[in-house]
Design a protein around this nucleic acid. Structure first.
Length: 321
DNA sequence: AAGACGAAAGTGGTTGA
DNA sequence: TCAACAACTTTCGTCTT
């Protein structure tokens, strides 16, 4: 009795350890840290330090890049093989009508085995589509957790994936590309877009393949994907640049007037968002270099410059450089 | 020395004949 | 199917802070 309680205690202690990877703030040492699941961040309540961004979910994770990460992933057991729908746990009834001693079976027994085989065939999900889906969903899990994408959007991506599979879209592409494209689409629908570059980076695909697959997805599957506006990117970029809300609000205003002036059409939304942030950074005295902004927006400095010049010229913003 | 600027050439996608 | 085209990138030399 006592023993089992002790066992439970230690078990919970271990679980606690696994869940609260950072119990104290690295900056001020406060234990007042909170976990924001929806944003995937761990934040210190006292000094505001973001202890961990892009927090992953606690599913299996078997990639690591640094010694620190390697320590963290020790919680992982051996991965279940999702590529086989039943995880390799079922028994297969053999085809030969013999028992284990090699003796022929009695006719009544044979008939019984035959019926069993028939039902196994019928219940076992061995269609290629089913197998594809199982593999895809596990890849979706991996990708979404690596990119720090909330669960609700992951579910949306899974729904889109099923639709795409029904339209027989898997021909000519790999599961990985399809998954990345659906996840990208789901993010766009929910108005927290990731860039194609970003998505491709975390997936074993390239931007070109992903873009092609995404276009095919839009064409074939009946999903309304809103055009992503530069404003959708502002909050994420300004967060990455640790700009204040004041600066990002200013950037949004700039983009709104730019839209009214009709100079946003046909331009890369991330480039526009980057330029708006650059301008608002200067105006609000929180200047970031073009290089920094270009890096988080995944465009070149040249693009930031070009958009920025256009905005300044067309909106008559007085920027004291 | 780092950041900003701009010219020139190259790339991949879209459009219209 | 192909050429023209717009947007963006890469590269690199120059100027500014």
């Amino acid at each position: 009795m006592n023993e089992s309680i002790d066992l439970k205690k230690t078990l919970y202690k271990d679980i606690d350890k696994a869940f609260c990877r950072e119990a104290f703030c690295a900056d001020c040492g406060s234990a007042n840290v909170v976990c924001d699941d929806t944003r995937g961040e761990i934040i210190c309540n006292d000094c505001g330090l973001v202890i961990e961004e892009h927090m992953m979910d606690l599913g299996p994770e078997w990639r690591s890049y640094t010694a620190e990460e390697r320590k963290k992933r020790s919680r992982v057991g051996s991965p279940i093989n999702y590529s086989i729908h039943d995880k390799g746990l079922s028994t297969m009834i053999g085809r030969e009508n013999k028992d284990i001693y090699g003796k022929k079976l009695a006719p009544s027994r044979r008939a019984e085995i035959y019926r069993m085989r028939k039902w196994q065939r019928r219940t076992r999900t061995h269609s290629s589509r089913e197998r594809n889906l199982i593999q895809a969903l596990s890849e979706l899990d991996r990708l979404a957790s690596q990119m720090g994408i909330p669960r609700s959007i992951k579910e949306e991506a899974a729904i889109i994936y099923r639709k795409a599979l029904e339209k027989r879209m898997s021909r000519g592409t790999t599961i990985e590309v399809m998954v990345a494209a659906t996840l990208y689409a789901a993010c766009r629908i929910r108005k927290i877009p990731r860039t194609l570059d970003e998505t491709a980076e975390h997936s074993r695909t390239n931007k070109k393949q992903l873009g092609q697959c995404f276009r095919q997805l839009v064409r074939l599957v009946d999903v309304a994907i809103p055009i992503s506006t530069p404003i959708d990117f502002i909050s994420r970029f300004s967060n990455e640049l640790s700009l204040t809300g004041k600066a990002s609000g200013r950037a949004i205003k700039i983009l709104e007037t730019a839209k009214k002036a009709g100079i946003t059409a046909g331009k890369d939304p991330t480039g526009l968002a980057a330029a708006a942030l650059y301008i608002s950074g200067i105006l609000e005295d929180e200047r970031r270099t073009q290089r920094e902004i270009a890096r988080v927006a995944r465009v070149t400095e040249v693009t930031v410059r070009n958009r920025y010049k256009e905005l300044v010229k067309n909106l008559q913003i007085a920027v004291a450089v």
